[in-house]
Every structure is written in structure tokens, then in C-alpha cells.
């Protein structure tokens, strides 16, 4: 990892500690040892560890530059962002579209998105697999394990 990356991590650790301490200060106090005792101790520890991380990074030498394979390419970042977007979309669509439709759409898109660049995407296979997986999971859990996964617009047609 590069010096800059380690410094950013240290700053993030420090920020997390300070943010947690700030939130702790908003809590009501009821004595020396109350519900804020541990949050204060934890927040201080997080901030202190963040500072140590920054100090050790500044003092340490011998950082190697990142190898090209370690550097994130814009396409990789795009795939990560798209995956996060797809998962968020799947969760948001669970109630309005229902589990079977939301899961089938998510699976189809995610199969396609994660296909390695060395392989050609196979949309028909992906569509069949996505629909089949969504239906099998839905039927198994709704009727086999009595877990009431949302049916969405399909609800009136479900037994």
C-alpha cells in the first residue's frame, strides 16, 4: 500500500473516532459511569489509533509504488459502482416489484456485469438462470419455509 493510501486510512480512522465522539457528546449524562462511558472510551481509542496510524505512516520509509495490477482501473471502479447500484436497486424494488421480479432482474444484470472480460456474455442462458433461480428461491422460502417474501404485483395470483 502506498504512503498516501495509508495516510488516507489514518485520516479516515481519526475522522471515524472524532465523529463517534461528537455523537457521544449529544447523549444525556447520568453520572461518571453511565451509558456514555464506553462510547467516550471507544471514540477516544479510535481517534488515538487514527493518530498513531498517521504518525507511523509519516515516520516509516520504504513504501513501494503500487504495481499496475494493484491500481484500480476506471472500468473496475465502474463495475463496483454498478454492482452497488444494482444491489441498491434490487432492495428498493423488493416491495414494489415483489421478490420474484426484482430478484430475476437483479440476477440477470449481475450475471452480465460480473462476466469476466475473457468470456462472452450469454444473455439467453443468463435470463433462464435468473428467472429459474428467482422462482426456485421464492417458492422454496415462501411455501417450503413459510417466509413471506414480498410478492409485489404477483400477489393476487399467488396461491
Amino acid at each position: 500500500m502506498s504512503r498516501n493510501s495509508e495516510l488516507i486510512i489514518g485520516l479516515a480512522m481519526l475522522g471515524a473516532g472524532l465523529g463517534y465522539l461528537y455523537l457521544t457528546m449529544q447523549l444525556p449524562r447520568r453520572g461518571a459511569v453511565d451509558a456514555t462511558f464506553f462510547p467516550y472510551a471507544l471514540g477516544s481509542a479510535m481517534a488515538a489509533l487514527g493518530l498513531l496510524q498517521i504518525l507511523f505512516t509519516l515516520r516509516r520509509s520504504g513504501f513501494l509504488p503500487l504495481a499496475p495490477s494493484e491500481r484500480l482501473q476506471p472500468r473496475q471502479l465502474l463495475t463496483v459502482a454498478a454492482t452497488l447500484g444494482l444491489v441498491a436497486g434490487f432492495i428498493a424494488a423488493l416491495r414494489p416489484l415483489g421478490f420474484p421480479i426484482a430478484a430475476a432482474l437483479f440476477l440477470f444484470a449481475q450475471f452480465w456485469l460480473l462476466t469476466p472480460s475473457t468470456q462472452r456474455p450469454r444473455p439467453i442462458l443468463y435470463a433462464v438462470l435468473a428467472i429459474l433461480s428467482a422462482v426456485v428461491i421464492f417458492v422454496t422460502f415462501r411455501y417450503g419455509f413459510r417466509l413471506m417474501l414480498p410478492g409485489g404485483p404477483l400477489t393476487p395470483y399467488l396461491p
Binding site: 444491489v87 416491495r95 428461491i137 417466509l147
Partner: peptide
């Protein structure tokens, strides 16, 4: 893995939803 992992993710979402039948828990795993 590009076939297996998305299916696992959907199953994980089912597991989270099943804890209390809340979409909130699925957001939490994300």
C-alpha cells in the same frame, strides 16, 4: 463465480429479510 455469487447475494438478502420480515435489514447488509 459470476453465476454463483449473485445467487448467494440474493439468498443472503432472503436471510436478512427473514430475521424480522423487514426490508430495513436488507439495507443493513448492503
Amino acid at each position: 463465480k459470476h453465476i454463483l455469487l449473485p445467487i448467494i447475494l440474493v439468498l443472503c438478502a432472503v436471510g436478512a429479510f427473514g430475521l424480522a420480515s423487514r426490508i430495513f435489514d436488507v439495507w443493513t447488509i448492503l
